[in-house]
Each structure stands twice: as structure tokens, then as C-alpha cells.
């Protein structure tokens, strides 16, 4: 019994070992003639699904551009691009175990994740803000004393709020929505007075509301998070190729065009506009490409 257990343990260790010493993603792509992209179902205009297995968005389209650049560099006549839907729960393990080669969605580059995976240069800097009803008169986080604030379970915004709670910045009541649509419903129905979340998600939710003019994004930036593509750790050759591809997109102005397409123009499926101009923080990240974690952006 014990021996068979030990054998099992050894087999598992050997199996996980093969992933760990894979000879690098570039070699894998070359050998298999395919690359697997991690895509998201609903991460705002950054990455979302149109149904029918079609995945679009600013970061998704950027990922396809990176893949074409890789194909050219590797001199492959044909490169099969597979997509794998990931969630916040499984994205890191799926990249680690080799299921996904490159994940471009809404993953925040932070120090905890850098222990497990590597990040490409930052391509979008998310600013956590709050959305309020336009007639509420709330202009800053200080105006929330005694009010109810909603945010979505399983997001970093919850932690941002909690830190404010410990610091004792105005006592407010917190509620948590199951997903972004649920959180926005609580704001819309008056159960909550403010919705704290990533700026682009707020802008997207407002643009899809029954009457977008009833809501506005107000107050200061509560937290800043660099969003970047994620890949396996300790694969400098692959990281360099991806980084170079992104830097080329920035230099040629392609990335700015993509930003305009997804954040300022009407986007499918409903033809609504997110209407979020390029932020100073994102501009700065493009001017000096880097893969610094969130902790280096400390306010």
C-alpha cells in the first residue's frame, strides 16, 4: 500500500517535472505548429466573448498581433492559433502547466503572481475608480461616510476598500455583487450608493445602462494596477519575443489604434461606446515599456 502510494507520488512528480523542464515555449510552438492563447469571457473591453467561440477585445486582438509577429520571426508558413477560455481562478495554473502559452486578458501584474509566472511589458494601466448616480452629489471617497458601497466578489477592488476601512477613512457599509452586472444592478436599484471597480469596467457598465446619463464616474483614483500578458516563468527567449512584438506595436502606433478601436469607437455586440480616453498612466507605460509589478505603482 505504502509502496504504491510512493510510486504514485513519484509518477506525479515526474509528470509535473516534464512541464517544468519543457525546452521553452518557442521550441514548443515550432515543434507543434500551434500556440494556445488564454482568452476571457467577460473582462470588459480588454477581452470578452461574442459567443460562437469568438473572442475579441483590446488585449485579445493585441495577442493575435503578437502571434503574427512570432510567426514571422520563427519563419513558420502556418501557425495554428488555439484559444482556451480562462477564469481568474484557473489562469495562473493553466499557464504554469503548459495548457496556455500566452494569456492576454485582464491579469494584474503583481509581486505574488511574479513568483509563479512572468509578465510581458505593461500594455494597459487600470485605475480603480467609483461610479455613482449622477444626482447623488458624491464627489470623492470622503463623501461616502454612512453610505453603502458595492464591489464585485473576487476582485482586487475588495482589498482596496478593505485597506481604506482599516485606515478609518469614513465609515461606509460594503456589499458584494456576484459579478459586475450584479454589482451595477445594486447601484442602479439604489441598494448601493457607489460602485468601486476598474475604470474601464465601470465605463462599460454605464455605457450599457438603460440611461447612461444617470450615472457618472466620480472621485479620485483609488488604486493603480498594471495589466499585462502572462506567460511561463523562466523562459527569457519567449518573453523577449513577446516584449519585442509589443514594443513594435507601440512604436508603429498600432497599439494606439487598437486602443481607439476598443475604447472610443462603438464595439460589438451592441455597438455601444466605452468612451474611456487613454489615461496618463497607460501613456507613461507605453512611453517606457516595463514589467514592474503593481507594488511599484504604490500611491
Amino acid at each position: 500500500m505504502k509502496k504504491s502510494l510512493m510510486f504514485l507520488a513519484a509518477a506525479i512528480a515526474a509528470a509535473s517535472g516534464t512541464f517544468a523542464r519543457a525546452e521553452g515555449t518557442l521550441a514548443k510552438i515550432k515543434a507543434s505548429g500551434s500556440i494556445t492563447l488564454g482568452v476571457r469571457e467577460s473582462s470588459g473591453a480588454l477581452a470578452y466573448s461574442l459567443g460562437d467561440g469568438k473572442y475579441v477585445g483590446f488585449h485579445t486582438e493585441m495577442a493575435y498581433r503578437i502571434v503574427s509577429a512570432l510567426q514571422k520571426r520563427l519563419g513558420l508558413p502556418k501557425l495554428d492559433v488555439k484559444t482556451q477560455v480562462v477564469t481568474s481562478q484557473n489562469r495562473v495554473p493553466l499557464v504554469q502547466n503548459g495548457t496556455v502559452d500566452l494569456e492576454c486578458g485582464s491579469t494584474t501584474n503583481n509581486a505574488a503572481r511574479q513568483k509563479d509566472v512572468a509578465f510581458a511589458v505593461t500594455t494597459y494601466v487600470e485605475e480603480v475608480r467609483m461610479a455613482v448616480r449622477a444626482d447623488s452629489g458624491i464627489a470623492s471617497i470622503g463623501g461616502l461616510a454612512g453610505k453603502t458601497v458595492v464591489t464585485t466578489t473576487g476582485t482586487t477592488s475588495v482589498r482596496t476598500l478593505r485597506k481604506r476601512e482599516r485606515a478609518g477613512v469614513g465609515a461606509f457599509k460594503e456589499v458584494f455583487g456576484k459579478d459586475h452586472a450584479d454589482s451595477f444592478l445594486l447601484l442602479e436599484s439604489g441598494r448601493a450608493d457607489a460602485f468601486v471597480m476598474d475604470g474601464q469596467i465601470l465605463a462599460g457598465a454605464i455605457s450599457r445602462a438603460k440611461r447612461p446619463s444617470d450615472f457618472k464616474i466620480a472621485g479620485e483614483v483609488l488604486s493603480v494596477e498594471p495589466i499585462a500578458c502572462m506567460m511561463r516563468k523562466d523562459d527569457p527567449a519567449f518573453k523577449k519575443e513577446v516584449d519585442d512584438a509589443i514594443k513594435a506595436l507601440i512604436a508603429s502606433g498600432e497599439l494606439a489604434k487598437l486602443y481607439d478601436k476598443w475604447f472610443l469607437q462603438p464595439i460589438p455586440p451592441a455597438g455601444t461606446k466605452v468612451g474611456l480616453p487613454l489615461s496618463a498612466a497607460t501613456k507613461a507605460a507605453w512611453a517606457r515599456p516595463n514589467d514592474k509589478p503593481m507594488e511599484d505603482y504604490a500611491d
Binding site: 484557473n90 509563479d116 466578489t153 473576487g154 476582485t155 458584494f176
Partner: peptide, 23 residues
Amino acid sequence: FAVSVSELTMFAMQAQEETSRGV
């Protein structure tokens, strides 16, 4: 968890996001 009760499932969803140690 869907109605904002901070019970075990909500803890799991939130803590795994914050710590990146889902397993």
C-alpha cells in the same frame, strides 16, 4: 455569497484572487 454574505465560498473566491494561491 451571491447576496453579499461573507461565507466560505465568498472567502475562497476573494482570497484566492488576492493571494494567487487558489489550490
